[in-house]
Every structure is written in structure tokens, then in C-alpha cells.
């Protein structure tokens, strides 16, 4: 994915060569790209605009802009729903899962990448084989397993499932990255008398930050957005995550479209803002698995 970021410069160096009829054709291509942009953005624009409208406005003139900036829907979401609770739960579950994935995934990858020991290749294979497994299809035994461990309907159960799903690709990315770091750094620290933990924590891991950002984004986005596992593993309203909470919401306010659009807008807001700020890292992180 680095190439998406880097091409701009390479191509400017070559310079676009123009040919006969190229101007017209490029104009047509631009027009199609903008048409596509409208298709991508207009639904989201309607969503945001409708959140400022009253129900009467939405039903009578769905295409019109709101008559005024009306925050009644926002107040209703604030005071009559558990939106904040859902948001908090999602933040907790996502950050705890990503933190755990980073810690245990990096530990395992560090052992495999930086030490020679018997069966290290097998260990890597063990972790990597998890990448191909669709855990959704093992939801019944997973459900029974969590039931046996008393982890159904708990934050911990959900977090551990997400962690297990994230470990394989984290080990894959981190092993590749850590292996590429030069041996000399480690050796000189060892000669200076640093112990293995200090070498890992103070010498090697600071260098692995770019890979950790990729691992974090690659896991945070699907976990933040996930609906399937909470649907099956969480039943208490107070533990529900934001996507799951939205379904409760859509059931309660079926006819109150202003509130529905406001709920959707608020739910989309955090990740959209982050994406706009970090679009390059998001795109790199999420397409990482499909681009080699």
C-alpha cells in the first residue's frame, strides 16, 4: 500500500504526457469519478442533513435541506437512549482488545523473530494457520466454551474472542517487521549488559512502532464495527456495543426518523473523523492483507 502514497511523487517526476484527444477523455474520466464521489457521499450527506430535520420535514420533503438547525433529535438521543453507554462500551472493548492483541501478538512475534529455538517455525505456522480460519462458523462451540468459562455476556469474553481473532495477523506482520531489524543493535545492547527484557522493550520495540500502527488500525476498525459477536455473546443492554446498540435504537424509534438519522450520524462520526485525519494509515492498514 505504500505505493499508493508514493506514486504521486514518482509520476510527477515522469510528468503526464498529453496526446491527441487526451484532454477531452480526461475530462470524461474526471466527470465519472465525480459522479462516483456523489454516489458515495450523497447518502451520508442525506443522513447528516436529516438528523437536523423534524419528522414532518423528513416525510414531506426528503430531498430538501433542513429549514433550520434543529437539535431536538440530538437532545432526544442524549436523554432518552443509552447511546453514551453503548459508545463507552465500544471504546472499552475496542481499546482493550487492540491493546491485548498488540501486547501478546508482539511478544510471540518477538520470540519467533529474534531468537533461535527448536520448533520456532512450527510456532509461526501455528499462529499463521489462524489467519485462514473463519471463526464465525465456529460460533456454536465458541458460545459453549464461553458459557463453560462463565464469560458469556461479559466484556472479558468479547475482548478475548477479538484478541484471539487478531493474534494471527498481528504475529504475521510483527514477525516480518521484527526479523528485518538489524542484529547489531541487539548485540551491542547485550554487550553493554542489558538483559533480554530491556533489549526488547527499550531497543527493539521502539523501532517497531510503524508496524504496530498498522496492526492497531487493522484490528481496531473491524472490532469497532463488529456486530456479529456481540449479537451472540452479549445480552445485557448495559454491555452492548455501539453497532449492537444501534439495532436496539432502530427498534425503539421505528417511526421517529429524525432520531434514527441522528443515531446513525453520531455512530458514524467518531470513525469518520479519525479516517479523515489518518486516511493514509487507514487505507494502508485495512488493505494490508490483500496487497503484498
Amino acid at each position: 500500500m505504500a505505493n499508493i502514497a508514493s506514486t504521486t511523487t514518482t509520476h510527477q517526476a515522469t510528468g503526464p504526457v498529453s496526446y491527441k484527444g487526451e484532454g477531452f477523455k480526461n475530462g470524461a474520466i474526471q466527470a465519472l469519478l465525480w459522479l462516483n464521489a456523489v454516489i458515495m457521499l450523497y447518502p451520508l450527506f442525506v443522513m447528516v442533513m436529516s438528523s437536523f430535520k423534524s419528522n414532518a420535514e423528513i416525510f414531506s420533503s426528503p430531498l430538501a435541506l433542513p429549514q433550520s438547525l434543529n437539535f431536538a433529535n440530538l437532545e432526544k438521543v442524549w436523554s432518552e437512549t443509552n447511546f453514551l453507554q453503548y459508545l463507552g462500551n465500544s471504546l472499552l472493548v475496542t481499546s482493550a482488545s487492540v491493546a491485548l492483541i498488540l501486547v501478546v501478538g508482539t511478544m510471540a512475534a518477538y520470540a519467533i523473530a529474534r531468537y533461535e529455538f527448536r520448533f520456532s517455525g512450527l510456532w509461526l505456522m501455528f499462529f499463521l494457520s489462524g489467519m485462514t480460519v473463519p471463526l464465525k462458523l465456529a460460533i456454536i462451540p465458541l458460545f459453549l466454551q464461553l458459557n463453560a468459562l462463565n464469560l458469556l455476556n461479559t466484556y472479558a469474553g468479547l475482548i478475548l474472542v477479538y484478541t484471539a481473532m487478531g493474534i494471527p495477523s498481528a504475529v504475521f506482520i510483527m514477525t516480518g517487521f521484527l526479523r528485518a531489524l538489524p542484529k547489531e543493535l541487539e548485540e551491542s545492547a547485550r554487550i553493554d549488559g542489558a538483559n533480554e527484557f530491556v533489549i526488547m522493550w527499550q531497543v527493539m520495540l521502539p523501532l517497531a512502532r510503524p508496524a504496530m500502527v498498522i496492526v492497531a488500525i487493522q484490528n481496531a476498525v473491524p472490532i469497532w464495527n463488529d456486530f456479529f459477536f456481540p449479537l451472540i455473546l452479549i445480552t445485557s443492554d448495559s454491555l452492548k456495543t455501539l453497532p449492537q446498540g444501534l439495532t436496539v435504537f432502530m427498534g425503539e424509534f421505528v417511526t421517529d426518523w429524525g432520531v434514527l438519522f441522528t443515531g446513525l450520524t453520531l455512530a458514524a462520526l467518531p470513525i469518520t473523523l479519525l479516517y479523515i485525519l489518518l486516511s493514509r494509515q487507514f487505507i494502508a492498514g485495512l488493505t494490508q492483507g490483500a496487497i503484498k
Binding site: M40, L41, L44, N225, L242, P243, A267, I283, L286
Partner: peptide, 17 residues
């Protein structure tokens, strides 16, 4: 670049939204 960011925007949203 802008078009890349736009076309990828819905990808980061939850299927629920």
C-alpha cells in the same frame, strides 16, 4: 488522492450503519 479517500470512506463504517 481525494477520490481514493472518498471511495474508501464507506469501508470504514459499520455494516449496521
Amino acid at each position: 488522492r481525494l477520490h481514493q479517500v472518498i471511495v474508501f470512506l464507506p469501508v470504514v463504517l459499520s455494516a449496521v450503519i
